[in-house]
Structure formats: C-alpha cells, structure tokens
C-alpha cells in the first residue's frame, strides 16, 4: 500500500490527467445516454408491444462482455478510421447506459398515478405539456436513480476502455499488468473506485435536490 501511495505522489500529474480523461469519457457518454434513453423510455410508455422488445434488446446489450463489444466495434468503426480510441469507448458506454436509463424512465412514467394523467388531460394539457409539467417531474427521482446506476456502471467499464486506447484510469491498470507493477494497478483500481463512490454520492445529492418538494412525503 505504501508503494502505491509513493507511486501516486511521484506521478500525481499523470494520475490526475487520466482521472480527468476518465471523467470526460463517462460524463459525455452519460449526457448522450440521457438524451437518447429518457425520450425512448417515455415513448415506450405509449406502446407496450415495442416496450417489451426494446427493453429486451437493452438487456441483451448489457450481457455482452465489454471487452468483446470493444472488439466487435473495431472493424465497424475502422471504416471511418476510428477503430480504436475515444469514439468506440464512448459508443460502448452509451449502449451500456441505455438499460438502466430506459428501464427506470419507462417504469417511473408508467407508474405515474393514472388519475394524474386523467386530470392533466381533462384540464386541457397537450401531450407535451403533460409530459413536461406532470409526468417527468413526478418520475424524476426514479429516472435519476437509473442515471446514477448508469454512471457507476460506466465508470467501471470505462476502465476497460483503456485496452482500446481510450485513455482514462484504466491505462494505469493496463500498463501495470504488462509491467508487473502492482502499485500502478492499485492506484488505477482505487482511483476508479473512488471516482465511482464520489460520483454516486454527488448524484445522490442531485437526486434529492431535483425531487419535487411536494413529492418528499417524509419532509
């Protein structure tokens, strides 16, 4: 452990740079995943047949080992000269994030009290007004829980993206393995864990802030 600490102190700049890279990759993937996943989740509540299919597909994607998914994308993205590096890692993380985000959005919106929906329609809200003013705010805590899930998952999988040259804290683990440098591996692994714990805590606070006040029954 002492050795790992020494390694960290001697290579602070590099470790911090890799951490920032990691955050950048996961952050960008999460934002894009939300922009894709939340609308899909909301749409699915209006179409049960499609919902089953889409949720199945998202679940299957989750079961593909990440290293295999990276491998599969190399020939495809090589066509545009992006076979390895940032782009395939980003795409993989977006795909992995879809299940928790879509599923939580779908379940949350599905569970909005039908009376709320009836009242919203009855007083003359358009579909979009209903989604924006009623359904999303009520569903937000559960959607946020899905996002938290996706972020923690992505931070872990992001470490493996180093194997295809996407950078991030996985680089320390990758190089540590090839160089038999245990300290590097420990710094990389602890870094990933800390990052996941901090992100989860911060998102937990954000979740509480975003929960509409009236929904906080214990308050």
């Amino acid at each position: 452990m002492n050795g790992a600490f020494q390694y960290f102190m001697n290579n602070q700049d590099e470790v911090i740079a890799l951490t920032l890279q990691h955050i950048q990759l996961v952050g960008l993937a999460t934002v894009i995943a939300i922009l894709i996943g939340v609308p899909i989740g909301i749409y699915l509540t209006t179409n049960d047949a499609v919902a089953d299919v889409v949720l199945q597909i998202a679940a299957i994607i989750m079961t593909i080992p990440s290293i295999a998914l990276f491998g599969l994308m190399i020939p495809v993205l090589s066509v545009i000269n992006q076979g390895i590096g940032f782009l395939p890692a980003l795409i993989a993380l977006i795909l992995y994030s879809q299940l928790p985000i879509i599923r939580n959005t779908y379940v949350a919106v599905q569970n909005v009290d039908p009376n709320m929906r009836d009242a919203a329609k009855g007083i003359g809200m358009s579909s979009w007004e209903r989604i924006r003013m009623v359904e999303i705010p009520i569903a937000l805590p559960v959607i946020m829980a899905g996002v938290r899930n996706a972020v923690v998952l992505s931070i872990g999988i992001g470490a493996i993206a180093a194997f295809i040259g996407a950078g991030g804290l996985g680089v320390l683990i990758d190089q540590g393995i090839s160089r038999y440098n245990r300290d590097m591996i420990v710094v990389g692994a602890v870094g990933v864990s800390l990052l996941a714990i901090i992100a989860d805590t911060l998102l937990g606070i954000l979740q509480r802030v975003l929960t509409p006040k009236g929904m906080n029954i214990n308050a």
Binding site: D113, M116, A119, A120, G122, I138
Partner: peptide
C-alpha cells in the same frame, strides 16, 4: 375528479 387529481409536484 374524485381523487382530486392535484399534481403532487406543484404548490
């Protein structure tokens, strides 16, 4: 409506 249908997220 019977169950008042007030929106819980709004004041």
């Amino acid at each position: 409506i019977q169950s008042n249908g007030l929106f819980p997220n709004m004041t």
